[in-house]
């Protein structure tokens, strides 16, 4: 086995007496798209927060490649190549759509601290940001404040910002949640395009079965914070425990 691009080892977090993520150990390879499933409250988003650094674990470690990054801040992890899109839309609401993406490009290129150059004059950064907006079909609304976008477009912007980070590890948290049937394909196409690059590792929390079937190389199942199943999509979906805990709730979520 080559070195995994991302690995968590006994990753655990407790909130008071409640164990939200319970000794989760798993590893991810470049070129692999893993879908993380589980009912609401299973600890999927909490596990994401532990990996991207928004939460600090009570126990256990996170490795990016060979490096232990457990003690690193979210910004340091972002610089190290762990990119994260959020489940609840998490944008800069009063800034324009373009500025939202430009901030990401800026951060990656390290021009954020430049206090005396005109942002408008840095056209290469602007153009790069516009490129991401075009691929997410948001170029037309580039000048609108992010808060003015309809929900589906906010989700697209969220994904465009993640892609603009150009991370090694892409973490999508329900990227199509609340999107209409005709909008979701834009996002799925974007994810499929990332998947073509065999150097990238993709983690995806998703409920929609068609999405899971279309994209997943592997599925892991979280239940009450524990990793209860891990394997190829067909094998995992066939497990009784998965049918019981996931499909039951999944049907509810489809509404």
């Amino acid at each position: 086995m080559p070195t995994p691009s991302l690995r968590t080892e006994n990753l655990t977090i407790r909130f008071g007496g409640h164990v939200a993520v319970d000794h989760v150990t798993c590893a991810f390879q470049p070129g692999e798209l893993t879908v993380i499933v589980g009912p609401n409250g299973a600890g999927k988003t909490t596990w994401f927060n532990l990996v991207s650094g928004q939460l600090k674990p009570s126990e256990g470690k996170v490795f990016k490649g060979e490096h232990d990054i457990t003690g690193q801040s979210p910004s340091a992890r972002a610089k190290a190549g762990i990119g994260r899109a959020f489940q609840l839309t998490n944008l800069f609401p009063k800034l324009s759509v373009l500025e939202n993406v430009r901030l990401v490009v800026q951060a990656r290129r390290g021009v954020g601290p430049r206090a005396l150059s005109r942002a408008a004059a840095l056209t290469d950064i602007r153009d790069e940001a516009m490129g991401y907006l075009e691929s997410a079909r948001l170029a037309d609304v580039a000048d609108y404040p992010a808060a003015a976008l309809p929900h589906g477009d906010q989700r697209k912007l969220e994904v465009a910002m993640l892609i603009a980070m150009q991370p090694d590890i892409f973490m999508f948290d329900e990227p199509t949640a609340g999107m209409s049937v005709d909008e979701a394909p834009v996002i799925l196409d974007l994810i499929a395009a990332i998947k073509k690059d065999m150097a990238k590792t993709i983690l995806l929390v998703e409920h929609k079965m068609d999405v899971v079937r279309a994209l997943a190389d592997r599925i892991i199942v979280l239940h009450n914070g524990e990793l209860v199943a891990d394997g190829k999509p067909d094998e995992v979906m066939a497990l009784p425990i998965v049918r019981e805990i996931y499909l039951g709730v999944g049907a509810e979520d489809e509404e």
Partner: peptide
């Protein structure tokens, strides 16, 4: 939180 998440200290 998001500013931190995209890489700003």
């Amino acid at each position: 939180m998001r500013a931190e998440a995209i890489g700003y200290k």
